[in-house]
Design a protein around this nucleic acid. Structure first.
Lengths: 203, 203
DNA sequence: GTAGTATTAACCGAAGCGGTTAACGGAGGT
DNA sequence: ACCTCCGTTAACCGCTTCGGTTAATACTAC
């Protein structure tokens, strides 16, 4: 790719990447036209090809950008550090919110890219995925003291439940295409206090 | 549309509809090629155009099929009848599972169609939506006895939490493109007993 | 056979694709 | 004033694919 891309004003870089994330996350690789990306980014198709030699390069750059941005924010918000369960959930959410603020459609793109079948890119994605996975596979360790929870609680189910609920809410927001991040953060905090109120042992 | 479509063997009808649901749910209207639908359904493009005069007609038929199928199954599983909260959740899930068994991608299609911006169909979708909405707007009434729950429970939050969790799980399954419905039903039952165990008052 | 129906290969003009080229236009130096 | 540089784009390229049609094939029943 053309290094001049990085000397663009940051907002313009983001506008381009976000347009690409949106189009690629809502269409298959094959059915995602470069022209649509350019138009949405507010630049000409020629300029888009000036920065990214071809469609594949843009796609794979986005993919790498996903991994790097994610790791960067997870690190910055202390998500790899050992903490207590709800604290860890909260950090994870804050990191995710910050990423959404930057690139609203990055999450959906990541998942789509991961399951993308097109032979032109599928191999590259999978290879790169395993590279990143091996790099950061050191799982997050939690301080899980079972006695802090309501007696008899199915902790595994609780964990999955919390995960699904946050994903479900996020998905709903993405579908509607509106990202009121302050509102989202508020809802997430409500969920968090709700979980604490029902899962934590009442003395 | 050509009425001969309905004298096709049922599996073939479903194959065609499912191919269409898949393609339209994973690409914008404009970027969804009829050829891709035909290929996935295992028929020629000409035959597809033989049954549906054009792309728009197919799309709108799918949309109507969503509404009708949904209403049919919700009725069949007694989801409009007045019941207790968890019973109502369970019926809703069973209905949804049965629909997924028939048309795995109908859910995602419905949502996408609802937010579709293409001027060629947007108006028709919205108009039709309001028609259906007015038709079935008689809200489900619940027997909600607050005393059956754990004291101090935020019932509204509990309700949203359950909704998001089931949507989140469903979405995860759809993303992966694998629909092991027995497995899904099992997980949903686990969620249901989990919810009861944490939300219902323990005597 | 033959009549009728289900299905498709081959085709149509038009549009859109990924990608290139040549020219424009504004800023800075002289 | 002119030139140079460079970010940017309009116009274009060959080609594919688009939505949709047509004419011929394959199949079935009599």
């Amino acid at each position: 790719m053309n290094p001049k891309f990085f000397s663009l004003p940051v907002e313009k870089q983001q506008a381009i990447l976000n347009a690409a994330y949106r189009v690629f996350s809502q269409n298959s690789y094959k059915n995602s036209p470069m022209s649509e990306i350019a138009a949405e980014a507010g630049i000409s198709k020629s300029l888009l090809f000036h920065y990214f030699h071809n469609k594949k390069e843009l796609y794979l750059y986005l993919w790498d950008n996903c991994a790097e941005t994610t790791i960067e924010y997870l690190t910055r918000y202390g998500c790899y550090e050992q903490t207590e369960l709800f604290e860890s959930m909260e950090r994870g959410m804050r990191a995710k919110m910050e990423i959404i603020r930057l690139y609203p459609n990055m999450g959906s793109f990541t998942i789509r890219a991961f399951y993308e079948k097109d032979p032109e890119i599928c191999a590259a994605i999978q290879e790169s995925y395993h590279r990143y996975f091996n790099l950061k596979a050191d799982k997050v360790r939690l301080n899980l003291d079972p006695s802090q929870f309501v007696p008899g609680l199915d902790i595994d189910m609780m964990y999955r439940e919390m995960y699904w609920a946050s994903e479900g809410y996020l998905w709903e927001a993405v579908q509607q295409g509106k990202f009121d991040i302050d509102q989202m953060e508020k809802v997430f905090n409500q969920m968090l206090t709700f979980w604490k109120s029902v899962y934590l042992r009442r003395e």
